[in-house]
Design a protein around this nucleic acid. Structure first.
Lengths: 185, 185
DNA sequence: GTCTATAGATCGATAGAC
DNA sequence: GTCTATCGATCTATAGAC
């Protein structure tokens, strides 16, 4: 579907929430219909490829958001430290301080991973690569930057899991604060 | 079901693998039947509560394994550093160096969390609490130990996600090595 | 205890009226 | 573009023969 209008944006965002809360298998067309206020006929009009296309469009939507708000600052900001700061702010905003799960991370864990290998790999790969590059521009050598970047992205993912497990967003906030300190922003 | 015989152990372990690979919604009784070599009638003979009871028994099985191999060393080993070392060894063994996903972590992310809130909270809560206690016995003060324990468990979970995303167990191995260093074993 | 057969609900997807 | 009706497959769960 064309995802450029505000209306389409809202539709994709609502579908994304269903996938996030229920997972790929748990996100039935009935539930997606309820969440969007659309019948199955309308959904298939927008997404002829059905549920799999809906998930693919949602993943593309997420990729675009991260490119603009997370990766671009890491890449383009003159001062790497400022870019890293903006990356962490965007991360906090996106995951609603730990109240919202990472759909890509959830997909990576179960069988839906096989459906979306490319998208999942690109998402985490870009995140780690851009963060490492920013750290290297900040003066760290490559091995150290690579390791720190990988470790930071993993810490964010793990904190999301623990926040959900404890139903406590403070876990995520602490993890982000700690990342901020380790990355020396 | 009674889970004390070797036969029953094997059955629960096979069911666990299906839940791990497919998630709660994706683990259909047909697939569980194929993985165990049992018909639906037999499965319901062992688990009258059906799929939900199967998942509950699997979670109890995991809890028992972690109690024995992960939490007990942290609690009982005379030298806290030795207990932490054994905890990390058991973690590496259990997750097959990153090739195996954490079922409890996966359940925490989607709607199955609501079904098993108690079990999920207990699993992560025990892990963090036991690790923090060991760190305190090792000389660290409580706030520092709590934070380090939470951060370590989150790092392990995040590393499992990234290992799956990149299809590379080296990510998990690096995370465990780094945890070993941070915990000063 | 094991199986097959099947119920009843829900799944993803399609057809066709409007 | 939206809806309802419906298809065939699959789901969880049960019944009942052996």
């Amino acid at each position: 579907m064309r995802a450029d209008t505000a209306e389409a944006e809202k539709l994709v965002a609502r579908i994304a929430e269903v996938f996030r809360e229920r997972g790929y298998e748990g996100a039935s067309l009935t539930r997606i219909g309820q969440a969007t206020g659309l019948g199955k006929g309308s959904l298939y009009n927008f997404f002829p490829g059905g549920k799999e296309e809906m998930a693919a469009v949602v993943l593309a939507h997420i990729a675009a958001w991260f490119e603009e708000n997370v990766f671009a600052p890491l890449r383009d900001e003159g001062q790497p430290a400022a870019g890293i700061g903006r990356m962490l702010d965007a991360t906090d905003l996106y995951f609603q301080s730990g109240g919202r799960v990472c759909l890509v991370g959830a997909f990576a864990l179960d069988d839906s991973r096989n459906r979306f290998v490319t998208e999942i790999r690109a998402y985490f790969g870009s995140w780690v690569a851009h963060l490492s590059a920013a750290l290297q521009r900040g003066g760290r050598d490559k091995p150290e930057a690579d390791q720190l970047a990988e470790d930071t992205v993993a810490a964010i993912q793990g904190a999301l899991t623990l926040s959900r497990a404890f139903d406590d967003t403070a876990v995520f906030s602490r993890a982000l604060a700690r990342a901020r300190a380790r990355l020396a922003v």
